[in-house]
Amino acid sequence: MKNNLKVYRAMRDLTQEELAKELDVTRQTIIAIEKEKYDPSIILAFKIARFFKVQIEDIFIYPED
């Protein structure tokens, strides 16, 4: 699934490691999501959206959209 995580992370000037710590995941998971190799669970997607104070759809783009 396409996503804008890297953009939002850059807007907050966070490193992958810092974001990973905030979300209680490993840095490898952030890398995998940004590279669109891994689609996060709905819980992690919500956590990411809440962290950036946006809707899930702002970060994750469902292919049909």
């Binding site: 209680d24 995941v25 992690l44």
Partner: peptide, 10 residues
């Protein structure tokens, strides 16, 4: 440090 998460579980 977080050593395991949902991706590693999957």
């Amino acid at each position: 440090e977080i050593l395991e998460d949902e991706r590693i579980a999957r």
